[in-house]
């Protein structure tokens, strides 16, 4: 059997491990579905309470914000990687990953997949609840196209999580900066309101990062909202971010690990 096949099995084993650990906490899914339900309820009534500039009806704003809520779970999954690495450092399992033939870098990349796939499921559940309970109208003809786009979105967001994971390896703290980055991205990415409401300089930042392109594109595919830029430009932006930042983030993670090995701090937590 080739090394590539053995490595693929190792990659799957990391995902399976995360699934087993997840299943050992039996109430986690219930609590997350309830959280999604409460968020949907809140925004459903907010959409009925106020008239939002730029939206034809309460329903169109509700559709807009439901996609935003769905996407935030994907964003959180990418930014959960540093905390996962921190847990491995504390448990002493990071040493084992580092000293395995599979290695720490591939292990960190593999451990991103379960949370990302799970965030997919949560996003789907959120959209489903929106449809069933709150009469959200999905644009079904383009929903299948949203799936590969969602995968691309994950690859565009993943480097940010890997970069923060590299920081965690060096400074041993898992949540440094991640919560405010997620909060900032939810504002400049237009999760809850259109970015056209933001001041000019924030709109510029909004156009520079991939999150806005992702939300725009997915809203267009899921609820048929209008695009801020062409779908080709949005796709190109996501591909560009993934193609440039992913190898860069993996390189930085490798350097962070070597730094820890040289200084001897890799064993600290």
């Amino acid at each position: 059997m080739s090394d590539a096949t053995t490595a693929a099995y190792a990659f799957l084993a990391v995902m399976r491990r995360d699934l087993y650990v997840y299943r050992s906490y039996r109430t986690r899914l219930v609590s997350q579905v309830l959280t999604a339900l409460f968020s949907l309820t809140l925004f459903y009534y907010v959409s009925r309470l106020v008239h939002v500039h730029g939206f034809a009806s309460s329903n169109s704003y509700f559709g807009f914000v439901v996609v935003g809520i769905s996407l935030i779970s994907v964003l959180y999954s990418c930014f959960s990687i540093p905390e996962l690495v921190r847990q491995e450092l504390i448990a002493g399992t990071f040493d084992r990953l580092l000293l395995s033939p599979f290695g720490a870098i591939r292990s960190v990349l593999a451990m991103t997949f379960f949370p990302m796939m799970y965030s997919f499921v949560l996003a789907a559940i959120t959209l489903g609840l929106g449809c069933v309970i709150f009469d959200l109208h999905l644009h079904w003809s383009t929903v299948p196209v949203a799936l590969p786009v969602m995968l691309l979105v994950l690859f565009a967001f993943l480097p940010f999580g890997v970069l923060f994971a590299a920081l965690t390896v060096v400074i041993k703290q898992g949540n440094v900066g991640t919560s405010w980055v997620v909060a900032m991205l939810s504002i400049v990415g237009g999760l809850y309101f259109p970015v056209s409401l933001l001041p000019g300089w924030l709109q510029t930042i909004s156009r520079l990062q991939p999150f806005t392109a992702a939300t725009d594109l997915l809203r267009h595919l899921l609820v048929d909202s209008s695009l801020g830029e062409s779908s080709e430009t949005a796709l190109l932006k996501l591909v560009g971010f993934a193609a440039v930042l992913l190898p860069l983030s993996i390189f930085v993670l490798g350097r962070a690990i070597r730094f820890g090995q040289r200084r001897g701090t890799i064993i600290e937590y």
Partner: peptide
């Protein structure tokens, strides 16, 4: 020490996981 184990995994699953990342021949 006693570190380096996944507290929520069973013994068998721990060994299976380790065998995989140790890239034991299939």
């Amino acid at each position: 020490g006693d570190r380096g184990l996944y507290a929520r995994l069973t013994v068998r699953r721990q060994l299976e996981f380790w065998a995989r990342i140790a890239m034991v021949p299939r």
